[in-house]
Design a protein around this nucleic acid. Structure first.
Length: 537
DNA sequence: ATAGGGTTAG
């Protein structure tokens, strides 16, 4: 029963049954440990192992590989060594499975030398030993060693090839080498096809990625998710949704990962109805959803402006990560609900949820949005002590905006001058912008001076400064800056609008009258009205 | 032992 439940990764239920059991044999403990690894909770898996020891239940040749995997996943080198000692004491280091587990564990913890010692020490090796060692080298970025071992192998299986293809394609961005390996493979398996596609997509070679995707003989959900995700990341969410639909129509059942990519596409497009449809689809088809899917949904609802659906989804979540909370705070902020964002933040604090720097940035920007200056300042002051987050440039930048908006320019200036982080140039830029709205000429000039010292005086800075002078009626200063700009060969990037009519692209360029023929404008307006007219019909 | 996932201000 426990084994069944933990296989389904329903660990809450498994623990419930576990607590009621009287027969604690090794098999049951193994099931619990394995279940926790599968639900990505390696520390909990390790905890169960220690409890098992305390109850004097002996581990077997199944226990050690899985608990070693837990150590590797949680990067627990100390714990791993403890188990190594235990393994040697009980003679399990003669077991090949256990030894392979040790090799993987040491590699995950960055100790490739220790792993290699084990690898060399025993004559008996199988493909898993070789592949584990290669995988370890790849994970630690030791490609030379990996390649050496790969060449020394007496025989290679699809794992060996796939790992190398993936390593060159993704980790190193050396797609040419990946392709070379891919072409030399005796049998190209699905995994390598997918790795190649991801490799091309990573370096922006969309055409190649698409070609391979079309070419591949068999596609699985992962192939589709890679492509959907790639389109979202390249700003073509429409195509991503089209692919998602295509996948469904080919009878491929989406899983949680592919669904996340589709939800992101909806978020980016503001396609609320499509997003809702996916949510219902997941529920109806019993697709195993998790907090990542839920978080993506909250984000989507927020970006589509459907606050209530976002709130409901968030409140119904059984498990949340920092990102879930951050998404909620950012979402409330961008929709103008600063007070509620603060309430969520307070809830986080009450519940003792771990916070990261983005949490603080989100809450500060929510304050900024809603003009909650006192609250924002209060939170900022308590960042390090109360929340354990060291302020970064982004936080200072947010603070400068907050103070600037409230007209407290002196304090803003003070903060930039005393803050411990480097790269203050964007902050002087923010202050300069605030000086314009607050009409503070002296501080504006001071900011520009700082920007010059930092060699961050791009044309935007001068344009802003000249606008400030113009607003004060200081025309001679305006001219001085214009001249300075032309002398330095600075040219303001001209703003332009592009409009497409009847398949032709028309560009309107600001301040550039030479291309600005009246006939052309008339033509555009005429075609536009024609279009609107026919649309009405 | 190998392939795909969520947040980022102005």
């Amino acid at each position: 029963m426990i084994a069944v439940t933990s296989n389904a990764s329903n660990m809450d239920y498994a623990e419930l049954i576990f607590a009621q059991t009287n027969q604690y044999n090794t098999f049951i403990w193994n099931s619990m440990i394995r279940g926790y690894i599968e639900s990505s909770k390696p520390p909990r898996a390790f905890l169960f192992y220690t409890q098992m020891q305390r109850k004097n239940v002996c581990g077997d040749n199944h226990t050690y590989p899985i608990v070693l995997k837990a150590c590797g996943l949680m990067l627990g080198l100390e714990e791993g060594r403890e188990i190594h000692a235990e393994v040697v004491k009980r003679g399990f280091d003669l077991n090949l499975f256990v030894r392979n587990g040790l090799i993987s564990m040491y590699c995950r913890c960055g100790k490739t030398l220790w792993a290699r010692r084990l690898f060399d020490e025993f004559e008996e090796r199988d493909l898993v030993s070789w592949n584990s060692m290669i995988c370890g080298y790849i994970g630690c970025g030791e490609m030379v060693e990996a390649e050496k071992l790969f060449n020394e192998m007496p025989e290679r299986d699809s794992f060996s090839w796939a790992m190398m293809v993936d390593a060159y394609g993704k980790r190193l961005g050396d797609v040419a080498r990946a392709r070379e390996l891919f072409n030399n493979m005796p049998i190209r398996d699905l995994v390598s096809w997918n790795s190649m596609i991801a490799g091309y997509a990573n370096i922006g070679e969309m055409v190649r990625a698409c070609e391979l995707f079309k070419e591949m003989p068999v596609k699985n959900v992962i192939s589709w998710s890679i492509m959907i995700d790639v389109y979202v990341r390249h700003g073509n969410s429409k195509e991503a949704l089209y692919l998602f639909r295509e996948m469904l129509s080919q009878g491929i059942k989406p899983d949680k990962v592919s669904v996340v990519a589709a939800i992101q596409a909806c978020a980016e497009l503001g396609a609320l109805d499509q997003g809702r449809w996916i949510k219902i689809y997941v529920q109806k088809n019993k697709i195993a959803s998790d907090f990542v899917v839920q978080t993506a949904l909250v984000d989507m609802f927020m970006k589509c402006g459907s606050l209530n659906e976002a709130r409901r989804t968030f409140n119904n979540m059984l498990e949340r990560s920092v990102i879930s909370w951050n998404v909620m705070i950012v979402g409330l902020g961008i929709n103008g609900y600063g007070e509620e964002a603060l309430a969520i933040f307070a809830q986080m604090e009450r519940q003792g949820v771990f916070m990261d720097d983005l949490t603080l940035l989100s809450v500060l920007s929510a304050c900024n949005h809603a003009g909650l200056v006192t609250e924002g300042l209060h939170i900022f002051k308590r960042m390090t002590d109360a929340y354990g987050v060291e302020p970064k440039v982004e936080h200072y930048s947010c603070l400068v905006d907050l103070l600037g908006r409230a007209g407290r320019l002196g304090e803003a200036k003070n903060i930039i001058e005393t803050m411990p982080v480097k790269s203050s140039s964007p902050l002087w830029g923010s202050l300069l912008a605030a000086c314009r709205t607050q009409r503070n000429l002296t501080l504006a000039e001071f900011s520009v001076q700082k920007l010059v010292e930092l060699q961050a005086d791009d044309c935007g800075v001068y344009v802003l400064m000249s606008n400030i002078y113009a607003e004060e009626g200081r025309w001679e200063d305006v001219l001085r800056i214009r001249k300075l700009m032309t002398d330095r060969g600075m040219k303001k990037e001209t703003g332009s609008s592009v409009i497409e009519v009847d398949g032709c692209v028309h560009e309107f360029v600001n301040g550039d009258k030479s291309h600005f023929l009246m006939e052309e404008i008339h033509l555009v307006i005429w075609s536009l009205s024609k279009m609107m007219f026919s649309a009405e019909l």
